[in-house]
């Protein structure tokens, strides 16, 4: 299969660079897969799993949170606010954050705050499921 250039960078370091066959990106409006010669797109990321397919047999799964995906002629660049290999992911911390979000939701007074808290909680729960899968 044809390959294209992919880079995953976080503010602290360059996590991945190289030629890949496909990458599954968690976009804010839904997951999408980028293959070679994808049309230029720029999208905001939500917290989730990036699946990098170097070859059909070799897949890497990374956790990202917040940031941007930029598909251009040169390939795909992910600017992630936080990124880490899945093995290093701290599920205890996620559980703590979910609990926090639940408390926020319970404490929220205005409609807007409630909506915000609910969204955040949804995102975190989705993330939990994605990791468990």
């Amino acid at each position: 299969m044809a390959t294209f250039h992919f880079e995953l960078v976080s503010p602290e370091r360059l996590l991945f660079t190289g030629e890949v066959e496909a990458v599954v990106v968690p976009g804010i409006e839904g997951q999408f897969t980028v293959l070679k010669d994808h049309a230029p797109v720029m999208t905001v990321l939500k917290a989730g799993i990036v699946e990098i397919e170097e070859t059909a047999a070799k897949k890497i799964r990374l956790f990202v949170r917040g940031g941007f995906a930029d598909v251009a002629d040169g390939g795909l660049t992910l600017l992630a606010e936080q990124a880490a290999p899945l093995e290093q992911f701290d599920s205890a911390r996620l559980a703590a954050e979910i609990k926090n979000a639940e408390e926020d939701l319970a404490d929220a007074k205005t409609e807007e705050a409630k909506k915000l808290a609910a969204e955040k909680l949804d995102q975190l729960n989705e993330l939990k499921e994605a990791i468990a899968a």
């Binding site: 503010p11 976009g27 797109v41 720029m42 999208t43 941007f68 002629d73």
Partner: peptide, 28 residues
Amino acid sequence: SEAAYEYEPGQDEILATLLPRNISVQVF
């Protein structure tokens, strides 16, 4: 780049989230 970009969500929303982040990145 000259390519016609597609933006998800809109261009303004992306710019609005990117600019504040850019400040933090510059500080970092």
